[in-house]
Design a protein around this nucleic acid. Sequence first.
DNA 1: ACTTGACGAGACTGTCGGTCTCGTTAAAGT
DNA 2: ACTTTAACGAGACCGACAGTCTCGTCAAGT
Lengths: 217, 217
Amino acid sequence: MEAKDAEGPAPDAGSRGGAGTAGTGGARPHTGRRRNEAARQAVLDAALRLLVESKGAPITVEAVARAAGVGKQTLYRWWPSKGAVLLDALTDRAGQDVPPPDTGSLREDLRTVVAATFAAAQRAPWAPALRTLVREAATDPHLAELLRAYTGTRRALLREVLDRGRARGELPADRDLDLLVDQVYGLFWYRFLLGHAPLDAAAAERLTDSLLGPAAP
Amino acid sequence: MEAKDAEGPAPDAGSRGGAGTAGTGGARPHTGRRRNEAARQAVLDAALRLLVESKGAPITVEAVARAAGVGKQTLYRWWPSKGAVLLDALTDRAGQDVPPPDTGSLREDLRTVVAATFAAAQRAPWAPALRTLVREAATDPHLAELLRAYTGTRRALLREVLDRGRARGELPADRDLDLLVDQVYGLFWYRFLLGHAPLDAAAAERLTDSLLGPAAP
DNA sequence: ACTTGACGAGACTGTCGGTCTCGTTAAAGT
DNA sequence: ACTTTAACGAGACCGACAGTCTCGTCAAGT
């Protein structure tokens, strides 16, 4: 491998400006060879490819390193665990969070968000990757934590939509919004992981109606 | 599955008792030493104990065998995989399926079933055991299948309640009952596995209201 | 007595996550 | 140019674990 180094944006680590040679503590200027950005990209590419190709089968670290043409140690130098690599690969490329819709109609906003969530997870290459990731998370506490953080932001987005709807009076003031959020994502993950029932636009429509009551004319 | 034995001993029944063996017996004559029922019990006891004690930590086959005072081979002679042992241990002792209530009121039946489900999973020793089991199922296809079958019967029970309610006219004829079932169990598993929100009687009450609409006076 | 097969014990195999070592190579300072 | 430093690819190595195989023993039936 050893591509001619793209010298991409430095990861983060040491700020090179520190002229002080500060011996005592903290930031020390960085000498020596720098991180190979091409290797990072190769790892993420390989991980994502394997994640997509493996239909539910587990991914091994060796497979990722081999497919990326990279030593295992390089991998562990920059990611704390296998799970971190996989999640990074998935989120790095994942369609990024669109701001939730705000049409003025709770029913419409909710249906849109739910349908978008369903569709995104079903979209071509992502489903097996996400399923594999969740599987790995079951035995990798590190990954589980990362995944929890990631889904937390999704939950917050949905919660915003509901809050706006309630502020507009489209929902009783005493309605349990956390329950509503959990009903949406509970159903989503349940069907996504078990795969026994569809997660399509029709399901999103019916779920919305079930949560808000039948549409008023 | 299963090594030799043309007999295909089901891991359940097993005629206890000593010589003579009151005759329910298999049609096929059996020579040689018989299965040690005490060993089977010891395995299930040990597995359940470890399952309960391990708060989410994985259970090893060796630990089960050692705790039961049993050789590993004995274990694999009667169960096809580690997961099968764990599930057997849990279901063997788990509160058995009560027939679903039939009070004539869908709302009441539904609330009862949901509350019972929530309560059963939260009851003292079961929660960590069940969580561990589901974790293992993520990497054990065999166990995943067994678990799917087990939960399938639970789903069917709930479905009966809903069918009766719809037959009584308490639900619109075009209501999607599979969606309702998935909403219940989706929320249940979601909260059970993540543990971020309670699964108590109040939650059951609110979920029921959410599914059926606010209670009519 | 003799056959059969389950038993406890534990050695063994294969897989995998993660670490360690080694010789090499790129970046920086001098 | 020379030296120092650290990242690099390769792969040996470790520890944990599921599952298999072997062995000597022991109980149930013939």
